[in-house]
Design a protein around this nucleic acid. Structure first.
Ligand code: SF4
Ligand code: SF4
Lengths: 135, 135
DNA sequence: TATAAGTACGACTAACTAAGTCCGATTTCA
DNA sequence: TGAAATCGGACTTAGTTAGTCGTACTTATA
């Protein structure tokens, strides 16, 4: 319950690692997966997703790699979660998230509204956390 | 991600329903499962768990049923989650929760501490929510 | 005392998701 | 041209969630 996926954890570790680098420094997937013992193939795809969402920038070919393209002070953890999972970080109810009416008891449900409120409260907490604050 | 299980939602609906009752009123599992279109067998087991954790009180036999044994003003949603799931509501990292060292990258992980802090922040938000506040 | 209405409890299955793997393609430097 | 890197889809495995089933126990009451 409320557990972060491994993908998110790996992505965060990678991002944090890159945040340490000096300006313009490239990091390869192999380098990071070796250092933190992360499964290479899995991390590789995470990097691609982060790249697609412009959180990191990719350079192909020999001597290629990735570079953090955002300022750690402004980069929110919630953005990373969204990039990897493809949906907002906090979606504690199944109804309001994604498609609206995918719950069979939608009409008789009495707890939706309070939970949506809870959801937005939790959201605030997560939206406060930036990569910088993970140091 | 961060999604409540159906079990929790069903339990909350049932608890909320019982909170409406007058003092001493019994509710049967069938009554509740009918009204909110919840799977009877599943709800039945949830009620048993809630009963074991003294959140509701059970009366067997004909004319039996359940009664809310806690004051809605004091009953926290987090307690209900714990009763159903058997673990604290918020365990965003896999390491500190349950068994401490069940993560293969535990030694090289750089994000554990910040996430534990985040965890306690989210915990605060959830611990604030009582059944009464779901009305 | 038999029956019906209820809870108690464990085992089982199906569906879904998370985690990890594999393979081939593309890009680019030297 | 070959090595080192990103790119991207298909696949497999493991684990979790949701739901079902069968049976035993409890109790009021006809
Ligand atoms: S309608 Fe109620 S039960 Fe269904 S997903 Fe929304 S909150 Fe959960
Ligand atoms: S050690 Fe790091 S990666 Fe492993 S569970 Fe804890 S926070 Fe997650």
């Amino acid at each position: 319950m409320f557990q972060l996926s491994k993908k998110i954890e790996y992505a965060l570790i990678a991002i944090k690692h890159m945040a340490y680098g000096r300006r313009g420094q490239l990091f390869t997937t192999k380098e990071i997966s070796d250092k933190y013992q992360l499964p290479y193939d899995l991390l590789a795809k995470l990097m691609q997703k982060l790249s697609k969402h412009r959180i990191i920038e990719s350079y192909q070919g020999v001597n290629g790699g990735y570079i953090l393209s955002r300022n750690p002070v402004e980069l929110k953890v919630s953005e990373i979660i969204y990039a990897i999972e493809g949906k907002p970080s906090v979606t504690i109810v199944q109804c309001e998230s994604e498609t609206p009416e995918n719950c069979s008891i939608h009409t008789t449900c009495t707890i939706k509204n309070p939970l949506v409120k809870l959801q937005s409260n939790i959201n605030k907490v997560i939206d406060e956390l930036t990569v910088m604050e993970m140091f």
